[in-house]
Simulated scan of single mutants.
Amino acid sequence: MSDRLKELADAGVSIWLDDLSRERIETGNLTDLVREKSVVGVTTNPTIFAGAIADGERYDEQVRKLVAEGHDVDRVIFELTTEDVRNACGLLRPVYDATPADGRVSIEVEPTLATDTEGTIASAQALWQAVDQPNALIKIPATREGIPAITAVIAQGISVNVTLIFSVERYRAVMDAYLTGLEQARDAGLDLASIHSVASFFVSRVDSEIDKRLEAIGSEEALGLRGKAAVANARLAYAAYAEVVASDRWRQLADAGANPQRPLWASTGVKNPDYSDTLYVTELVVAGTVNTMPEKTLDAVADHGEVHGDTVTGTAAEAQGVFDALTGVGIDLDDVFLTLEDEGVSKFVDSWRELVETVRGQMEAAAR
C-alpha cells in the first residue's frame, strides 16, 4: 500500500477515484486500487463513460443485445452506465460494510436537466432504482433548480452527491437543502442513518478562472495572488460546513441518526503546470472530507505528496484575507462564480452530447 496515500487516509480524508470503466471493474484494477492505494469510493460523469465506452470492447455485447431489443440511445446509455455503477458498488461493498460513509459510487442525472427540477427528481429516482445498491450516490448539480430537487430526493431516502458547487453562498444553500430533506425524511418516519450525502466543491477551475482575470489586470499585486483563490475558497467552504454542523439544527438531526453531508473536494487535478500537481490535495487535508482524484493526481500523491496533518482547520481568516485582496485588485467574485457555474453546466451538457454520439456510433456498428 502507498505510504503517502495511507497517511492521507489516516488524516481522515476519504480517497475516491474520479474515473470508472468496465475494464477497471472486470480486470480487477478497481479492486487493486482499493487494496493498494487506499481508494474507498468512485465518482463518474458522462465524459468518463464516453471515454470508457469508446476505448474498449467490453460494452459491445451489451450494446448488441440492447440494439436487438429495439432500445433508443438514451435507454442504452442508461443501461450501460447503471450496470457499471451497480457492479462497482458490488466491488466496493466490503468498504461500505466496514465504513458506511465510504464504499460509494456516484452516477449523475442527465446534465440537460440542470435547469429542470422535476426532471432531475425523476432522473434521480430512476437511477437509484436501477442501480439498486445502498452504497450508490446520485449526482445532482447545485443549480438554482437543482437545490429543491436535492431536498426532494433526500426526503425520499435517496443518497446524493451534490455536484458543481463553486461559491460558499451556493454551498450554504446546498447544506440547507440537505438538512431540509433530512427533516422531511425524519417526519415521514424514514431511517436517517441510511441516507448519505457529499457536497462536491470544485477547486481547480476557480484558480483557472481567477488567474486569467488576475493576468488581465497585470499589476504586481494581482499577479502575486495567482494560485491562491481555489484553496482559499475551499477553506472558507469548510468553515461554513463547520458552522452548520455546530448548529442546534444539525444536532437535532444527528441525535435522530443523521449523517453529516461531507465536503468533497472535486476538480483536484492541477491545470497549471507551474503549480504543484498535489496542490489541491495536500493543502486541503482535514478529517471528515473526501478528495476525488483522477488517477494522474492519485499517482502524484502516492509518489511525492507531502501530508503534514490538518491544513484547513483554523485557516478561515487567512482565506478571507485572500478574498479581500482579490476584491481589492478588482476581481468580481460574484461574476467569477456565476461564470463558472454557467460554464460548468455547459461543459456537462457537452459531455452528455459526447456520450450520446459515442454510444450512437457503437449502436450503429452493432446494427451492421
Rank of each mutant, 00 (worst) to 15 (best):
S204P: 02
L66P: 13
G103E: 11
T117H: 04
G224W: 04
S194W: 02
W128L: 00
F202T: 01
D324A: 12
G189L: 03
R35N: 15
A52I: 11
Q184H: 12
R58P: 00
R213C: 12
V174H: 12
Q156K: 14
D335C: 00
L33P: 01
Y275T: 12
S276G: 15
L192S: 10
G119R: 13
G227T: 07
V312Y: 01
T339D: 15
L33Y: 14
D332C: 08
G157P: 06
V160R: 12
N272S: 10
A256Q: 04
V67M: 02
G90Q: 08
V290E: 13
Y241E: 08
K212G: 14
D324H: 08
T81P: 01
S106G: 06
D72A: 11
T99K: 10
V336F: 08
S247D: 08
T47V: 02
A300D: 06
S247P: 02
A136G: 07
A232S: 13
V322F: 09
L179A: 13
A239Q: 13
G70V: 09
S346R: 15
I165H: 13
I138S: 04
I150K: 03
A239D: 13
I15M: 14
A222T: 03
Q133P: 03
E183Q: 15
A254K: 15
Y96W: 15
G257S: 11
I15H: 10
V13R: 14
K37G: 00
I158N: 02
S204G: 03
A155G: 14
E69R: 08
S2I: 12
D132V: 10
A237P: 00
V73W: 07
S38N: 08
V42P: 11
D176Y: 05
N259H: 09
A88G: 09
T327F: 00
D274H: 05
R353Y: 05
D207C: 08
A254D: 13
T81R: 04
R262P: 00
L214N: 08
E7P: 00
I147Y: 04
L192I: 10
D274M: 13
A256F: 01
D277M: 03
D310N: 14
P134H: 06
A185I: 06
V42L: 07
G257C: 11
D84Y: 11
I53S: 09
G361M: 09
A173Y: 10
E69Y: 08
P260C: 00
T43Q: 07
D299H: 04
V203C: 05
D116P: 01
E110V: 14
Y59G: 01
L182I: 04
E61Y: 05
A52Q: 06
R144T: 06
A230T: 03
E283L: 04
L179E: 14
Y178M: 13
I77A: 05
I158D: 00
V285M: 12
F49L: 03
R75I: 02
T151Q: 14
E61N: 11
T81H: 03
R368C: 04
S38A: 15
Y171T: 07
P100A: 03
N272L: 01
I77G: 07
K228A: 11
R353E: 12
Q133Y: 03
L192A: 08
I48P: 05
V160E: 10
R251P: 01
D19N: 15
A222G: 02
V13D: 15
C89I: 09
G314Y: 10
I138H: 05
S106H: 11
D74S: 10
E169H: 11
